[in-house]
Design a protein around this nucleic acid. Sequence first.
DNA 1: TTGTATGCGTTATCAG
DNA 2: CTGATAACGCATACAA
Lengths: 332, 332
Amino acid sequence: MTTISDVAAAAGVSVATVSRVINGNANVSPETLAKVTKAIQDLNYRPNLLGRDLRRTKSERVLVLLPNISNPFYSEIVKGIEDVANRNGYSIMLCNTDSDIKREKKYVKMLKTRLADGAILMASEMSCEELTELSKELSIVQCCEYKEGVPLPHVSIENEKAAYKATNHLISLGHRKIAFIGADNQFLSSNLRETGYKRALSDAGIEIKPAYICYGNYSYKSGFRNMKRLLDLPDRPTAVFCVSDVMAIGAIRSAMEENLKVPDDLAVCGFDNIHFSWMFNPSITTISQPMYDLGCTAMEALINIIEGKSSEIVNYFLEYELIVRSSTLKGY
Amino acid sequence: MTTISDVAAAAGVSVATVSRVINGNANVSPETLAKVTKAIQDLNYRPNLLGRDLRRTKSERVLVLLPNISNPFYSEIVKGIEDVANRNGYSIMLCNTDSDIKREKKYVKMLKTRLADGAILMASEMSCEELTELSKELSIVQCCEYKEGVPLPHVSIENEKAAYKATNHLISLGHRKIAFIGADNQFLSSNLRETGYKRALSDAGIEIKPAYICYGNYSYKSGFRNMKRLLDLPDRPTAVFCVSDVMAIGAIRSAMEENLKVPDDLAVCGFDNIHFSWMFNPSITTISQPMYDLGCTAMEALINIIEGKSSEIVNYFLEYELIVRSSTLKGY
DNA sequence: TTGTATGCGTTATCAG
DNA sequence: CTGATAACGCATACAA
């Protein structure tokens, strides 16, 4: 491996001078600049980041922890994060936690060990206590999913209201028997979406039937299975609100297997607006989260923390949108 | 930030002793072990990886460069990579290059600067010359897409034969007017798949019609658009082979818009076997790449290189599979 | 069993 | 404008 002193030797100067050249320091004569530049070229030298970052105690790298890269929902968010990061000279590295707290902590450890300057957490499995502890020493922003009462900024949408809007859309189409396929996890959004669903029903004077409420794990299969169960009910629902598009797809396939027509016999509303929700046939009515903006905002917040521009903890709630398509309304 | 000397001071020992404790060195008395352990706990100390790796000249980290995390094709591969990495004590970090050679080189730079021990390249935009140059100093494995004649191992499938098999499936169903939607990029697989398609036609004594051959960019829209064009042909094809599932989905939606039935009026075959290919309605006939195994094999090969277990360049071709579903054959 | 001293590759300070 | 040198945090050869 060629080091800065190799270059210095080759150019007949000191390492300090080479360092100045590398970092674009102005105080270097044209001749030495040329000599050093040539030596760098000749030796194909690249500064060792480990040495540099150790000295600078700054890496200009940021970790993005997400549960699963195969979830298309995250792709757009990551794009937003990356764009803002690149604009500001940061590199981002994606860390797949697989919703495994052990893996997650391994990556958090890299943060503690200064491998990166900060992190964006997309759906952390850590407890409020753990996160609070981390907040004292690390630069962290929560994105989409977040824990409340933790002294960390978060960026997300108002899930309760979004779910209310989705449910209300189904009600406005004349549905009264509206089922709900939620998620049985620890995340706040799951609760909020269920609350929004229930509030919409209540506000419309519709009785909340426990039999119409079930829980999956965001997967196609769980959507399929739960829908099957709902359709087996003596008084089957005519509409269903799923808290993810992938579950909505599962629900639709389930209905099709029973020879039901969507939306005529069953209206289906999803959540997230992933690409496949409009590619699918029928295209899926859904709540669109501003994924790209969520990513941008999270990264901007993180940079503010890292660079100490603002010490206060700001929480952002971005705008969502109901996108009506063929799975609830014909011809869309 | 608390360092090893803080711990040493707190425990009343030297930094060397603390280092021994951290690294599980046996030569440490039970009492000092206890003292040091306590100090580490009390100060909540974590060794600085930058310092450690700089000293060890080894990071036990590996970079995975991929063009786009939103392509579901890569998710399973990454899972395989991660599992093998974790089993062997490596951490992996995903790097989204966005098919941008500048971004790609930025990450490669991190390799050169010893931030990671090696990398898996999924669809590099770099030239053969550049890759050859890199091969001299870095541990790199190519996965799925690869450049030929470069002294780097690669792991993939035999794309030509796979495409032959897919096309032949359509022929065996009685189709003679078979179109091809390929990809207009620099990747070897694109050429090989086209070659396989043509060879299948030739072997069956079917004339190759240039009008039946068109190119997209793996996206839904390009599949949709190209199919539209094909269907506008005076002598429209009755079957189409797309080199990606997403383009196949686009093609199917295109056919549906023309009120054509799949597979009756148009049989569609994709490539990759992404999750959505079976969730889609109709489910999509496709070539299944052993994505998980591709990832495992690539990571194993990389570890071999990094740890110097084998110096020869081995290329792996894994088994693929034709998965027949409803988009070509009814009732599947 | 423990401590001292050195070096990993940089950058930054300070003197010249 | 340039060079010598200390320091970043850690691991390790060597000495004790």
